[in-house]
C-alpha cells in the first residue's frame, strides 16, 4: 500500500486558515490502513480544526466525507454535486488522490493533509516500512524476493558494499543490510548460485529517470 503520515496540525492550519467552508475528504484505501487519512482520521482532524478556529473566534464550516478511493474517476464523481459550496478541500488521500482531485475539480483548491511517504507494508500496528520503489522492472525473482532497489540504501545489484557490518547498513545501524537479507534468503532457498550470477546494468529508463510514467493497456481500453 501507499504509506502516508498526517501533516503536523500547525501546517494544516496554515493551509486552511483563510477558508470559510472547508471539506475534509478522506480515502478508504491505503491511507485508511496506515491510519493517516481514513474516516476516523477525517473525524479527528475535523474536530481538532473546529476547536482551533472556534477558540480563535473565527467562523468556519468544516464538513467531513470519505470516498472509497480518490484515484478513480467514478468515486471522485460522487461529490460533483456538492463540491461547489466549498472554498477549499483538504484531502487526506496520498499525493495521487490530491492530484487527481485537483485535475477533476480545477477551480477549487485541493490541499494535502498528509505527507505521502512510500510503498510499504505494515510490520506491526503503528510501524510501516518501505518495500518497493516502483522501478518498473522487477528483479525479485533473482534476489530471493528481497528488493535491492528499495532495501539497499545504495541500490546495489551485485552484492553488498563494504559498509555492511553485522548485517546492518552503514547509513544507520537500525537499517538492515538489504544484501544480507538477500544472501540469507538465497541460502535458505538453496539458490546461492544466483548470487554468483552478475546482474546486468539496470535499465533505469523505466524508473523516474525516464520522466513521468504511464501504463497503457489497449485490451482494457473502451
Amino acid at each position: 500500500m501507499i504509506v502516508a503520515k498526517q501533516k503536523p496540525i500547525e501546517e494544516i492550519i496554515e493551509e486552511v486558515k483563510d477558508s470559510k467552508k472547508l471539506l475534509i475528504l478522506g480515502c478508504n484505501e491505503c491511507v485508511t490502513v496506515c491510519e493517516a487519512g481514513g474516516k476516523k482520521e477525517v473525524a479527528v482532524l475535523a474536530s481538532a480544526l473546529r476547536m482551533y478556529f472556534m477558540n480563535k473566534g473565527q467562523e468556519i464550516t468544516i464538513d467531513e466525507h470519505t470516498l472509497e478511493r480518490q484515484c478513480d474517476h467514478e468515486y471522485l464523481e460522487e461529490i460533483r454535486g456538492n463540491i461547489d459550496q466549498y472554498d477549499a478541500v483538504l484531502s487526506l488521500a496520498c499525493g495521487v488522490g490530491v492530484q487527481f482531485m485537483a485535475e477533476k475539480y480545477f477551480n477549487i483548491p485541493i490541499l494535502p493533509g498528509v505527507d505521502t511517504c512510500f510503498m510499504g507494508a505494515t510490520e506491526e500496528r503503528g510501524v510501516w516500512s518501505e518495500r518497493c520503489q516502483g522501478c518498473g522492472k522487477c528483479v525479485l525473482a533473482k534476489t530471493g524476493g528481497i528488493c535491492p532497489v528499495s532495501r539497499c540504501a545504495k541500490r546495489l545489484f551485485n552484492g553488498p558494499c563494504g559498509g555492511s557490518t553485522k548485517g546492518h547498513c552503514e547509513i544507520n545501524k537500525d537499517v538492515v543490510c538489504g544484501w544480507q537479507l538477500i544472501i540469507d534468503r538465497l541460502k535458505e532457498l538453496g539458490k546461492l548460485d544466483d548470487y554468483e550470477t552478475l546482474a546486468p546494468i539496470k535499465d533505469w529508463s523505466t524508473e523516474r529517470a525516464g520522466g513521468p510514467r504511464k501504463v497503457v493497456r489497449e485490451d482494457l481500453q473502451a
Binding site: 496540525i9 500547525e10 479527528v44 481538532a48 480544526l49 476547536m51 477558540n55
Partner: peptide, 8 residues
C-alpha cells in the same frame, strides 16, 4: 497532544 496544539 491534539488539545494542546489547538489551544484548548
Amino acid at each position: 497532544a491534539i488539545l494542546e496544539s489547538v489551544g484548548i
